[in-house]
Simulated scan of single mutants.
Amino acid sequence: MRILIALCFAALAFNTVSAEFQEGTHYRTIHAGPASEEHQLTEFFSYFCGHCYRYYSQQLPELKKSLPKEVEFKPSHVGGLGGAMGQELSRAFAIAELLGKQAEVDEQLFSAIHRDKKRLSSRQDIKQLMVKAGIPANKFDSLVDSFMVNTKVAQMNKDTEKAEIRGVPAFVVNDKYLINTSVVSDPDTVVSLINYLNQKS
């Protein structure tokens, strides 16, 4: 009897959550295929984006801390913003990820562009900031046009196109559901929607 009552409460809780989120309002399905096998949240962002910088500074730390343990957080840089320099920043992102320097590079690039209002007009400008983030200049030179970085940048461009990203920051759950950030933005609601979509997948 107790088990039956517990199951009823669980079903009621799920139905309550389900009622809170509607496809077309809070999220949309970006393709008809299966969701990813592993639960994940992909953030599409650009270092050039002021909204991304504010989210990075104010809300992203809380969101990452609140994510369920089974959900992997995957940032992905959108190189389509900022012309050629956008793609150069995607290369910087890929290098940082390969070397385990993501936090240091994020802080350096976001701060230089948005806090210090530094204009980036060449690969050399980015290289100087990467060195400040702790990446040796010779390491940057050896990786920036490498096969690994080229592959990573091409994959991010492909993922951006597949997810039909039209603005950033954007969040995709399990490679299948695009969150409507104009309706769902605060970390608690994002996590609730992720839990709902994980059950749906």
Rank of each mutant, 00 (worst) to 15 (best):
G134R: 15
L109H: 13
L109W: 11
V131R: 00
R123S: 03
K152L: 05
T151K: 09
K117R: 12
K162T: 02
G134S: 14
K118P: 02
F147Q: 07
E107T: 10
K127I: 02
K152N: 07
D159M: 11
T160W: 07
D125H: 04
I113W: 07
S111P: 13
V131W: 00
A154F: 10
Q124F: 02
N150A: 15
D116K: 03
V149L: 14
M130D: 08
G134C: 14
A137R: 04
N138E: 01
L143N: 06
V144L: 10
L120P: 07
D145K: 15
K118D: 02
L143W: 06
Q108C: 03
M130G: 08
E107W: 08
L120I: 06
Q124M: 04
A133C: 12
M148C: 14
N138H: 01
D116C: 03
Q108T: 05
S111H: 11
M156I: 07
H114A: 00
K139M: 04
R123C: 02
D159A: 13
N138F: 00
N150S: 15
K158V: 09
Q155N: 14
F147S: 06
V149Q: 13
D141H: 01
M148D: 15
Q128Y: 09
T151N: 10
I126H: 05
F147N: 06
P136C: 01
N138D: 02
N150G: 15
A154Q: 14
N150K: 15
F147T: 07
S142H: 04
S146C: 12
Q128W: 10
N150L: 15
E161T: 10
F147L: 12
D125C: 06
Q128H: 14
K118I: 02
K152R: 11
A137F: 03
K127Y: 03
T160Y: 08
S121G: 14
A112P: 09
A133G: 12
Q155D: 15
Q128S: 13
Q108R: 06
S122M: 09
E107H: 10
Q128V: 11
Q155K: 15
K118F: 03
K118Q: 04
K158A: 13
A112H: 07
F147E: 06
I126W: 05
R115D: 00
S146T: 06
K162C: 01
N138S: 01
S142M: 06
D141N: 01
K162P: 00
K118G: 03
A137E: 04
D145W: 14
D125M: 06
S122Y: 06
I135Y: 08
Q108Y: 03
